[in-house]
């Protein structure tokens, strides 16, 4: 199956004053359509940087990042924005909701930017997703009236509302209780089945990793152990402890 994400020897350097920080040092990954890739690694290992490159909000210093067959380094700002809008759904670690919009409008936002659905179709899709994430009674609430978990569910609904080919999430279950977290994983599975969406999550959550079809482990900006197909023994132990 053709890869939706293809990363070839990507590096990313940041300059902090006179110091150059090598956030990524030659990472190569291929992610096939419909896969669920989990990026694991300690803080500062480059997980978020890798996600920003895949999510087209940044471009690599060297190497290539291809998303949906397009080399992101060769795209204009406008084309990158369009690619993000139409191909990718983001779930940010700190929710990043628009504070002045209510839950419904926050979720509707990407659809409004796409301008492809009628008001009725938008409403139907938004409400259906909000029902799935259990926020129907909070439709007209503003983000500051919600708990952290509820905000994260809004962010998830917003990321999924356009039915993107690729869903990126930075620690998506970090602020959720176990039941909601499980709901999200179920939703992911359903979308994966119905829309053949690809999911790439950066996570510490072993429960999330247990659902992944691939796990990439990063350390110091490099692939630590290559690509594995499931969680480690200790991670599985954590899952079983959590279930108990």
């Amino acid at each position: 199956m053709k890869a939706i994400v293809s990363i070839e020897n990507a590096t990313k350097d940041y300059r902090l004053g006179k110091v150059v920080v090598n956030a990524l040092r030659g990472v190569s990954i291929d992610v096939a359509r419909g896969e669920f890739l989990s990026i694991a690694g300690p803080s500062g290992s480059g997980k978020t940087t890798l996600l920003t490159l895949i999510g087209c909000v940044d471009t690599p210093t060297t190497g290539t990042v291809e998303v949906a067959g397009r080399d992101t380094a060769k795209l204009s700002e406008r084309e990158l924005t369009s690619l993000r809008l139409n191909t990718i759904g983001f779930i940010f670690q700190s929710f990043n909701l628009v504070g002045v919009l209510d839950v419904f409008r926050n979720v509707e936002l990407p659809l409004l930017l796409q301008r492809s659905l009628s008001a009725g179709e938008r409403s139907k899709r938004v409400l259906s997703l909000l029902e799935r994430v259990g926020l129907m009674e909070h439709v007209r609430h503003r983000p500051n009236e919600l708990s952290g978990g509820q905000r994260q569910r809004v962010a998830i609904a917003r990321a999924l509302v356009t039915r993107p080919e690729l869903v990126l999430a930075d620690e998506p279950t970090a602020n959720l209780d176990s039941v909601t977290g499980q709901n999200i994983l179920d939703l992911r599975k359903e979308l994966n089945r119905s829309e053949h969406s690809t999911f790439i999550f950066s996570t510490h959550d072993a429960r999330v990793m247990s659902h992944a079809s691939q796990i990439v482990r990063l350390a110091d900006g490099k692939l630590a152990e290559g690509i594995s197909t499931g969680p480690t023994v200790s991670e599985l132990h954590e899952v079983s402890s959590a279930k108990a």
Partner: peptide, 16 residues
């Protein structure tokens, strides 16, 4: 600024 970043990341063009 964070809101601007989010809107741009979601897909709002610079013109928006």
């Amino acid at each position: 600024t964070r809101e601007i970043g989010t809107l741009r990341a979601i897909g709002m063009q610079r013109g928006g």
